[in-house]
Design a binder for these strands. Sequence first.
DNA 1: AATGAATGAGAGTTCATTCAT
DNA 2: AATGAATGAACTCTCATTCAT
Lengths: 209, 209, 209, 209
Amino acid sequence: MTRASAGKPGTTIEENGYAPGSVPRRLLSVATKLFAKKGFDRTSVQEIVEAAGVTKGAMYHYFGSKDDLLYEIYARVLREQTDQLERLMAGDAPLAERLSAAASDVVVSTIANLDDATIFMQSMHHLSPEKQKSVRAERRKYHERFRSLIEEGQSSGEFRADKPADLVLDFFFGGVHHLGSWYRRSGSMSAQQVGDHYADLLLSALRPV
Amino acid sequence: MTRASAGKPGTTIEENGYAPGSVPRRLLSVATKLFAKKGFDRTSVQEIVEAAGVTKGAMYHYFGSKDDLLYEIYARVLREQTDQLERLMAGDAPLAERLSAAASDVVVSTIANLDDATIFMQSMHHLSPEKQKSVRAERRKYHERFRSLIEEGQSSGEFRADKPADLVLDFFFGGVHHLGSWYRRSGSMSAQQVGDHYADLLLSALRPV
Amino acid sequence: MTRASAGKPGTTIEENGYAPGSVPRRLLSVATKLFAKKGFDRTSVQEIVEAAGVTKGAMYHYFGSKDDLLYEIYARVLREQTDQLERLMAGDAPLAERLSAAASDVVVSTIANLDDATIFMQSMHHLSPEKQKSVRAERRKYHERFRSLIEEGQSSGEFRADKPADLVLDFFFGGVHHLGSWYRRSGSMSAQQVGDHYADLLLSALRPV
Amino acid sequence: MTRASAGKPGTTIEENGYAPGSVPRRLLSVATKLFAKKGFDRTSVQEIVEAAGVTKGAMYHYFGSKDDLLYEIYARVLREQTDQLERLMAGDAPLAERLSAAASDVVVSTIANLDDATIFMQSMHHLSPEKQKSVRAERRKYHERFRSLIEEGQSSGEFRADKPADLVLDFFFGGVHHLGSWYRRSGSMSAQQVGDHYADLLLSALRPV
DNA sequence: AATGAATGAGAGTTCATTCAT
DNA sequence: AATGAATGAACTCTCATTCAT
């Protein structure tokens, strides 16, 4: 073994710092499902630990509080979204194509993690003020990266410039966050189809008149 | 009846059935504010009655439960939205104008009642299943009325028909529901300006290519 | 009824604000016994309410917290001690007699309320910082009133002046607070006998050499 | 043996059986501080081990339980006090001098170990009944040794005999135990000065009238 | 119409201790 | 000698609701 993991040999460490199938991972996973389904306040710690098959003590060994559990869910979502956007923006395809790909991708990944998206919108107030601040800051950075794409097109004349980029983006993200309210996996449209439609709607809105 | 009596002097009973300034009205009003600010579960009955300057007994005299209070808030919002849409659709202006007016209006009235909108999105869980069903049914009727406007234009060729009307509408309403997350009254845009932009975005999305 | 009680007629209000035999009085009474016997931390709210024959909810209806219950016990003790000292100091008997009476009295009343005395010494840290401050301030006033008697005698030459009055007093009060550790009602000495001995010990200590 | 080895170089095992600086010694030392400052119940095992820089497992390796830690603290105090009293009584100085030296010494050593004294008074409850019994028995032996000095003087007529020796002693020890409530190292009196005053107060109380 | 004392179930959290390693 | 994950019982406190008045 050269340098793989500093901890116990044989332990694979995932991105979020917890081994797959481990107790904290199971807790995060069931908590995500339950928070999305019933809301944070209506989900008791008792329910979470029962669903994860552990005891309360075990949960409090890994997470300082119920709020902490929620924060970890937020942290993972933010990390993944930011990484993905970074990746898509970096290409050298034409601007409209990069924006379209980013828009389509955010829809597809939102649908792939609808529980996370549901929690994201509904549970901000349950985080402590400091954590809210940190989440909002990360979120703003994401928004601004996206906006810079639009502004680039507005400057070059490729996109219409008579609408504030922020307003267009907030409109678009509203649509994305709303997906949880209507999209059903079992419905007639695939996530990719919805993504393509949404990306097209965003670009229509930016098409010069 | 030509016009809803908005503040007609001498009227003691308002649309929602409670005299203005009366105990139940005060309760509904403070409950709306508190639910929007702290969430339904985080707001205790004690806080509500204290803010309204009455006692618990008084509250339970008028409302069967805390959930009831929430339901009344939903009921009023739904009633008002439906009435307003009905009024706007009824005109004989050209289709695009009527749709644009409806779109713009829903934005303006959402901004005028941001607390209601916030509660609407976040608190469905807390209603009893039957009440949820009733709210959803009313909501669906609203959505369908709006959709019929779009489909009319798609049939006539005035709007592009290669995008499902439902998808376009859900996209649009996502934007509307998201207003509470970013719109600030103290910002640089008036509610009417935002409404006009949003209506324009909707119509851009429907413009034939 | 001319002016007796502003509340419900027929209700007798005691010094501490609660009717005798009422729920809050019963709670205070059993809490005093239990805190003295087992210590504050080792006494659970559950035990208190069971011993008082009420439910937890009832307790939290009257007292904001377990700490509050403790504070009320302190408040009563302080009030009674101060009142009693005031009464004894006011007389016009010779100084030594007044001091002796006060010393003897504090012993007798400490023995009469041994539980209160036990709690007093052991449970200060369980009060909130602000309440600790308030208790200490009241206590200091008591101490100072007592000290002024001694200093008066030291100035006049009636008592020896080569020992700090504070030190003598702290020594004496140490003995008083220690009563709970050894005095048994069933023993051979009455409270009055102990009080007389203690007063005599204090005066011996002050007798000029 | 002429004198206890206080810091004799080359000695690795101290009186209480643990090498200085060793893990168990560090644990006893921080536990003493914490118990005195916050009380036994308010101090968690977690805090103790963190302050000592070890883990829980290490603590449970050396001490059977949290209570054990407390008992060891008691045991050391008792051993030292008893040894010291034995030493002082053994001399051939006149009775009054020996009593005075013992009284003064107990004050000085109490002040030197105020944390121990604080714990001693407040934490008896927390020992198991058997350990309480053992502590009390040891304590009684100490008290009786002290009392024998007084009774010796009462028999010989050197001390007044009209006050029970027990009562005088309990009065005195009350003063000693109370030291923690008022004595401040930074104050104007040295420990030795307070010891001399207290010894004098005790002897004044025993002086024949 | 309105009070407020009382209920009872359940919430989140803490903690001393154990045990496989 | 030492680790740290896991337990399970107990803890304080909250709250929507009821009911006699």
